[in-house]
Design a protein around this nucleic acid. Structure first.
Lengths: 233, 233
DNA sequence: TAGATTGTTAATCGATTAACAATC
DNA sequence: TAGATTGTTAATCGATTAACAATC
């Protein structure tokens, strides 16, 4: 079997389908079509069915019924089983700055069975304090605390300058997956999964699109001059 | 000219190149190759050159010199000019909960010329307070305040349940771009650019990969039984 | 049965990567 | 000049979408 049969894009959408199915379950809706799931996730209906087809090799059992759709309850059960969201997942946070503090408090994690078991920072003023239900440790105690808590997932919210070295320590200490908020590409041994969330990059992309839409006609005109008017800045 | 010649992926990477070029400029490095830029951004060198080639129609002037590479200073100038990062961009934040508060304080935005000019919330206890240098308004004052401030970009950090209706109000009030942290797919008129950041989804994806790596052998074994053992949950 | 909707295969689309002539 | 590296075209890859037979 290839290392990862199910693309990240699909796994991400499965999570979205689960969210939507839970809402349907609350509303006591019994069945749902791929078309409806697609609308909720902002994708094509064929995409939804294709996504489910990736799970066939895992032999989960039930999916849909032609002509009818999917039973909400059973589909939800299969997807959560596949995603493994049933049991608690332990998370550590490294970097208790403004963003780190927010992430520690963010309720979206707890709602999904993520339990923040420890926080790490370099600031001596923070070490030893209890924040949001978790104790702040010095980064030197990483290995020790990870061994104790058995956490497998880390949230990295340090400054860019220290992100790579901290990530290496995390990998060494047995962390399997890192959600990286530092605007640096981490290079780590295979076996450690990294997802990068670059908020500043997202904002800059948005700003570019906003500007572009506003200026399309003008920009086109401005761009005509062949000469480069650069003054060394 | 097609609506958007430059893919989002490329624009995102251009931002990353700019970050790296600024570091090189600080270090007084004069030239850089596509290979080096690629390493910094975690991509292929051909990707870097391809990304730059998308900018050719914009006739910015200088890029690289075959056999030599790119002059750091001039390349940086061209990219920032293209991205329009030179002038201040005004941003409003809607939803001052735990995440919203963190985003308001997040320094990565200010460092990139984003200025948070107003905050909105429904909680009467927050309205009228000054937080992180911006006043908190009721959502009913959206149109008024946006007209005053001229903000074009919004950060949406409300609960999922109100995200769509707030987004519609934002679009109506002239917002061009929305960074959406609510785990809901927004449907808005064309002309409003939306980027979604779903932190819980990222975490669930990571947790899945972490679990998967740990279990590959076991999971494969477990998956064999043909019978579905579902008990209605 | 007729209408609806699944699961899957094939077609399309777009992004990434390789290759290489141009050129400093 | 010889070596290096760009800019661009062509090849590859993977993800999305369309189409449709199977089937409830």
């Amino acid at each position: 079997m290839a290392a990862s049969v199910v693309p990240d894009e699909t796994v991400g959408r499965l999570v979205t389908y689960v969210d939507y199915l839970e809402r349907l379950l609350d509303q006591e809706v019994a069945t749902v079509s791929s078309r409806e799931l697609a609308a909720a996730a902002g994708v094509n209906a064929a995409q939804v069915r294709k996504d489910f087809s990736y799970l066939v090799p895992y032999r989960l059992g039930y999916f849909g019924t032609p002509g009818v759709g999917y039973e909400v309850r059973r589909l939800l059960y299969q997807l959560t089983r596949f995603l493994g969201v049933t049991h608690e997942r332990r998370v550590v946070l490294v970097g208790y700055g403004s963003l780190g503090a927010a992430l520690a408090r963010y309720r979206g994690f707890a709602a999904r069975n993520f339990n923040m078991v420890a926080v790490f920072d370099v600031d001596p003023a923070k070490i030893g304090k209890k924040v949001d239900g978790a104790l702040v440790h010095g980064i030197d105690r990483l290995g020790e605390v990870l061994a104790q808590t058995g956490a497998e997932i880390a949230i990295l919210a340090t400054p860019a300058s220290s992100a790579q070295s901290v990530a290496e320590k995390l990998a060494q200490a047995g962390i399997r997956a890192i959600l990286n908020f530092a605007p640096v590409v981490l290079s780590l041994p295979r076996g450690v999964t990294v997802r990068q969330v670059d908020l500043s990059r997202e904002m800059q992309l948005l700003a570019f699109r906003a500007m572009q839409d506003g200026e399309s006609a003008r920009a086109h005109h401005d761009s005509l001059p062949e000469e480069e008017r650069q003054r060394e800045p």
